[in-house]
Every structure is written in structure tokens, then in C-alpha cells.
Amino acid sequence: MNGASLARNLRMLLPAISLVVLLVAIYALQPRAISYVGFNLMLNLAIPIALATIAQMCVITVNDLDLSIGTYVGFVACVGATMLTGGVAALPFVKDLQASGALPAVLPWIMQTPLAGVLVLAFGIVIYAALGALIHWRNLPSIVVTLGMSFVWLGLSVLILPVPGGQAPAWIRQMMTLKPAFIPFPIIAAIVIAVIAHVLLMRTSYGAVLRGAGGNPRAIERAGWSLLRVKAAMFALAGFFGMLAGLSLVGLTTSGDANIALRYTLLSIAGVILGGGEFVGGRISPVGAVMGAATLTLAGSMLSFMRISPDWQIGAQGAILIVVLAARTLIDRAERSR
């Protein structure tokens, strides 16, 4: 193997190396953490973060950035904790109307069906697709558009659920607390997420077109593909994974809150970058992104094993990000100097 390909392999393996280093460090500090129960506890919250990271990755693939993913995940969680459980009747303001006598105590079937929640969530994905189309059509800066959307999702969440509460549907709660034999559920979920995203984006022919729209949009356009449709598809995909993130999150927390996932916006960007993705050019790695999300989640556990105050959790995530980026820069330099 010559130097250049060694450097390339090293860069590809960087996300896995960082994750393994972190796991080894945790094992050294607290051997019992590397167990079935330990992984369940440490990686539970990695599932929604990994899904949000994949969502962010879809947007980054087409050279955009989604600053609204955090509030969108919160919105899905709020819908999940209300309308997906008890339909329109589960909304707090409907309950208020019932209490004041404006609505009858027993509501008709149409207002109690969880179908309303499904429709609202599907509507969310449609909005995402429309945003992608709008951003491409008007050549808008995605940062600003999604910044505006972050307020919109937050506003909708607060309208749906003014105070934290509600209840997640039983089937989601059961799914998130599955206890399969031998392998902890979060690990299985992470592998499934990574494989699906990998196959979808890296192994299908349309996936290559989707990534190509980030790498060389003109070539894709010349080849007869509609960039508008590609962008709408990528944003819709982001909306879909973001929805899964919100649903899995509400399954873990069992109740909804508009502010539940504000930090996901920045975490998801960090996860994509940690996983070896690049900001422009459609160069992404779904498997790396899931590992990046797991690394960021484990950073918190590692601190508590080191008996460092959780105040430093965000700082540790920032430090990991900087160290990995520095390592990548060093590898790039080594590659170029050869």
C-alpha cells in the first residue's frame, strides 16, 4: 500500500477510530459499562441523535445546511405525544374547549383517531420537500430559510403543546424499550439506521444522482436530471429521518416538549462532520455519521466516569470535534506532501 492510499484509508477510518478510542477509554475507567445494560443506558439517546444526524447529512449532501432540525424534531415529539396517541382530542386546547363546554365530553371517532397525527407528520415531510424546492428555485441561502423554519416549528410545537406533557403512543414506547437477546437494542438500531442510509445513498443509482447534485450540479443537470426534484427529494428524506428522530425521542422520554431537542441542530452538524462528511461537494458517509452521533453521545458518559461535572459535556463534544478535525487536517497535509 502506498502512502496516498494509506492516508485515504486512515481518513476513512477516522470516525471508527475515534469511536473505538472512546470505548476503550470508557472500558479503562469503568469496565462494567461495556455490558448489555451499560450500552443500553449509554447509547439510548444516541438513536434519536443518529437519526437527526442522518437527516442533517441529507441536507448537507446537496450543499445546504438545516438549522431547523432541532425544533423540527421537537415538533414531531409534540405531535407524537398528542395527536399520534389520541388524535385531535388529545390536544390541550381541545381539552380546554371540552372543559369549558364548547365541545361535548365525548368526541366523535374522527377526532380521536391517531390518523390525524399521521397526517400532520406527513404534512411535515411535505413542508420539507417544498423548502428544498423553494431553496433551489429561488437560489436562497438555506441557512436563512431554515433559520426562519426553526421559529415556525417551535411556534407550531408551542401551539400544539403549550406546556411539556402528553403521552407517547404505547407502540413507540414498547419499541424503544425492546430488550433483544445478546445485543443491546441501541446497537441494533444504530446498525439498521446506518445500513439503510448507506444502501439508500451510496448503493442505489438514484443515490449517486442525489450525491452528484452536491458534487457537480451542472453535470447532473446536463445528464437530464431535475435538480429541483433532487433537492426536494433530499429535503423530504431529511424530513423523514427527522420525523423518525422525533418519534424515537418521544418514545424514550414518553412525553413531549417543544424545547426537547433544541441542541440537536448543532449536534447533528457536528455528527456529520465527525463522521467524515464534508460541507460541500456531496462527500458524505452515512455509516460515519451514525458513528459520529454515537461518539458525541458517549462523550457525556465518559465524563461522568471521569467524575468530571456534566457542565463540561458540551465542551467535551467541542473538543472531540476539534481533535478529529485536526487529525483530518494532519492526514490531508501528509497526503499532499508525499
Binding site: G148, F151, V152, G155, L156, V158, P162
Partner: peptide, 11 residues
């Protein structure tokens, strides 16, 4: 309320 204010700001 707060929800409408956020919504308006975003739009």
C-alpha cells in the same frame, strides 16, 4: 401567545 409569535417571526 408565544406560539403565534414564534410562527410570525419565522414566516
Amino acid at each position: 401567545g408565544a406560539g403565534t409569535r414564534y410562527l410570525a417571526t419565522g414566516l
